[in-house]
Design a protein around this nucleic acid. Structure first.
Lengths: 109, 109
DNA sequence: TCTAATATGTCACGACGTGATATAGTCATG
DNA sequence: CATGACTATATCACGTCGTGACATATTAGA
């Protein structure tokens, strides 16, 4: 899948997909991602198995991530260059949301 | 609908729902929201009519917004106290995402 | 008069996250 | 050695959501 199509398909992405990608700063496997997301979200988020493995399979097909190593009972994934491009674009969108959130926050207090 | 259920149902919310709520710092009607969202998103976002009117109807049913005035060809909405509570909670979630985005951003450059 | 903008509404479609269910290996405790 | 907790992956049906197309009507300007 080409870069433009990937961007259109994945942006905006859900917080689930975002945290999965954000976990791949280093190679990780599905279950490791679940634990890592729990950690960086302050236990607020727990990803269901369907969510994690479904998303990983989809992202691999689209060239966002790739298999880093296939150990006997673990499949380690890492990000592709396209994946890095994608998450940087998503971070840009989040910054816009954050900017507007802070700007209008006072109106709701 | 009680506060707990509303929070569970609406958080996390999509950027579309977020910008619709954020537009109701003052009473607005559907079409006015579309224009306002285009403005604060730097024309990045354009909401389809199905999205806006569908979301407004749903939010009204759940007590997140209420009809402020029903002019002949415009229906103006405003936020309820529950709606304000909701968007403040969502802003809190966005701040967490933003914090993590900035924290890990460097790893993808 | 014709076109663009304003304004609302409905519907089918595809995509997504979720939780249940299933399977299986590992490891410590009693 | 058995039992339960944790690690690890996979699939499936379900409900929800945003979207864009289509429809309709009013108003303002060229």
């Amino acid at each position: 899948m080409n870069a433009d199509k990937v961007m259109k398909k994945y942006i905006p992405m859900t917080e689930t997909a975002f945290y999965i990608l954000l976990s791949l700063t280093e190679p990780r496997h599905g279950y490791g991602i679940v634990k890592h997301v729990e950690e960086i979200s302050g236990t607020r988020l727990h990803l269901g198995s369907g969510t994690v493995y479904g998303t990983l399979t989809k992202m691999q097909k689209d060239g966002v991530i790739t298999v880093f190593a296939d150990e006997e009972r673990k499949t380690l994934y890492e990000m592709t260059d396209l994946g890095k491009q994608l998450i940087l674009a998503e971070i840009g969108r989040l910054k816009e949301l954050h900017r507007n959130a802070v700007k209008y926050e006072g109106d709701f207090l």
